[in-house]
Write a protein that binds this DNA or RNA. Structure first.
Lengths: 191, 191
DNA sequence: TTTACAGGTGAACAGATGTTCACTATAATC
DNA sequence: GATTATAGTGAACATCTGTTCACCTGTAAA
């Protein structure tokens, strides 16, 4: 995406400081000399969808700008520049986390879920206090300790199934203690 | 983590608006009546590490507050409340993205990398313009189209290896067109 | 009982904030 | 050549900002 003149200065400031520059700060960033020039640019950027005004009348950067471009599929090849500009953008935190207060991150150890594509060293985003449904991956407390397994509930009967033939399906004797439901898996390749 | 009184009001505001409330806005949020009361709280929160003052002297929420709690491993069990308070916190965007301008997100179709735990429907974070190293997963353009493969470079000889026995290793005839290097894989279970 | 202190009020202040108005220079269009 | 946008200047404005000072009040320690 090609941004209008001076807008990148604003973005750099936001990334460094975490808030929008004031009009006078924008003067320093752009080399301009009148706050009125900044005001006009800001109005244009609002019309262009790069900025927004919230209910209090304060400027805010649109999430369309801060997010990542969301493209097509791998097999389809790399999109053309025109397609890139149309691409959706997204913010990873907003995208992956629904209930922030209840969301935690854990490191996976062990290979009990490897056939489901969850490998040792992966990170999992889990949500506590969520009711697991049939087929969910959960973090459960069983007699011997803690484990990640598929949760199955068919006709009132609950089972914990690993995604690895080395391990056996567990049928909890009494009640099952569900610590959290796995919402997402993240694997990072380059430190 | 247990926050001091009134601090949650501030956090809620930040999450809704994307910026810190002013002292007068804090009065509305807390029910207090003097900005001086807010000023004292802010100073305490800076000492507690919940807020910071940047070089310009403006208040900013510490990243320790906005991030996710980062806990131990699955096998070790759920941490005690005491451990939770000590836990590191992290921000997913900062954690996963190094070069924002060059980072894109793609949906994976096809099963050529399934033995590496990358499944159809997964999302991959890729970085363009990065030099691939031996063992990296890359998005490459080959004669027949686009594909995701392991990049191998041993003794000057380059090969593209799938992580699926159904497919064969590719030895590019002429130069290899690397579109991007895969930096992370993300799988989301609950829409 | 006295002292210290955390937590709050109320008012005043200098500086910063976005907005607005009148005006200028440059370039493109008719 | 005259006209019309576009992009910018410069100054003034009311309002909002965080800070500061003097003061009040209940609670807990000395």
């Amino acid at each position: 995406m090609i941004y209008p003149k001076y807008f990148l200065n604003l973005l750099n400031f936001v990334r460094r400081h975490g808030y929008l520059p004031s009009f006078r700060e924008m003067l320093l960033l752009t080399g301009l000399k009148s706050t009125n020039a900044i005001a006009k640019h800001f109005q244009n950027w609002v019309e262009a969808g790069l900025l927004e005004k919230d209910r209090a009348g304060k400027y805010v950067v649109s999430s369309a700008v801060t997010g990542l471009p969301m493209l097509g599929t791998v097999e389809a090849g790399w999109p053309s520049p025109a397609e890139e500009e149309l691409a959706d953008t997204m913010n990873l935190d907003e995208f992956l986390i629904h209930n922030k207060e209840a969301t935690y991150m854990l490191t996976v150890s062990g290979d009990s879920m490897i056939d489901a594509g969850v490998r040792p060293g992966d990170l999992v985003l889990v949500e506590r206090g969520r009711e697991p449904k049939d087929g969910d991956i959960i973090i459960a407390e069983i007699d011997s300790g803690w484990t990640m397994k598929f949760f199955h509930k068919r006709g009132g009967r609950v089972s914990l199934e690993p995604a690895n033939k080395k391990y056996q399906t567990i049928y909890p004797k009494d009640e099952l203690k569900v610590a959290a439901v796995v919402m997402a898996v993240i694997r990072k390749y380059h430190a």
